[in-house]
Design a protein around this nucleic acid. Structure first.
Lengths: 130, 130
DNA sequence: TATGATAACAGTAATCGTTACTATTATCAG
DNA sequence: CTGATAATAGTAACGATTACTGTTATCATA
């Protein structure tokens, strides 16, 4: 049975609406301003709980620590190798899932596809430089 | 300048030809039988070096520790949520890459797609049970 | 509105996978 | 052979995350 907590509220409030996929550390630092005594354990515990309730998404980064996404349904992400930004990509997931299933005898339950390279901003900056 | 080492040879020998995507720990335990004094640091160092020379592939698992693949070119993997096996999948990578690029203003340099679910073995065992 | 069960907490210690450090050893070009 | 240095074994440290523990907050029921 789930009980209400202001810590969890604050974490959700900080995460929702964002598209920058913050880390647990970032969320911790930000929520701390509002609730100075909150601890990392609380942040991790709640993020994990929210993910298991399909309210948010944990995005495993190929580089650093996990990132958190307020959009709960699995979707592809783009990881900038230059500035480490994480962007949402609009890819037809079903198309990719279908691609994977061809000739596979097991049961595919999901697909996580991540792209990497230079984000639009970094590409632009590089173009100006050269 | 790269110098030859029997430790590296042993690691390559143990990994090549395999399709089970062992962890660094597994390789360490196995190579240890041949070279009892080898240390984990040596295993990690060499695996990393080999990957940077595109001789092997580091496969980041969504569950546990990294897995290592003797096939050096990036290709999709299937992760069994039941037995944690990692399988190679034969998917047209270019198709997935193309899917990602639609309308994206940055520069996509690569794509890693991983599938998860039940591997053929686990699916079969589950079918027999029910 | 009390009360008791327990979910959630803060603070801290521990864990896991991996990387860094250091003094020694092995490789190899000249 | 010899000197430069890549690679090593052993160990310590690291970052991200999870587990533990005693206390506090929530909330269904009385």
């Amino acid at each position: 049975m789930i009980k209400h907590s202001k810590q969890r509220d604050a974490i959700i409030a900080r995460l929702s609406g964002r598209t920058d996929h913050p880390t647990a550390e970032t969320l911790y630092q930000e929520v701390k301003k509002e609730l100075p005594n909150i601890s990392m354990g609380t942040v991790y515990r709640n993020l994990k709980q929210l993910a298991s309730l399909d309210k948010i998404l944990i995005v495993r980064s190929p580089f650093g620590p996990d990132r958190y996404d307020p959009i709960p349904n699995q979707h592809p992400h783009f990881f900038c190798t230059n500035c480490f930004a994480v962007l949402d990509l609009d890819v037809d997931k079903n198309k990719i899932l279908a691609t994977g299933q061809e000739g596979f005898k097991g049961e595919i339950q999901g697909c996580i596809s991540s792209y990497h390279g230079l984000c639009p901003d970094c590409l632009e900056k590089l173009k100006i430089k050269n």
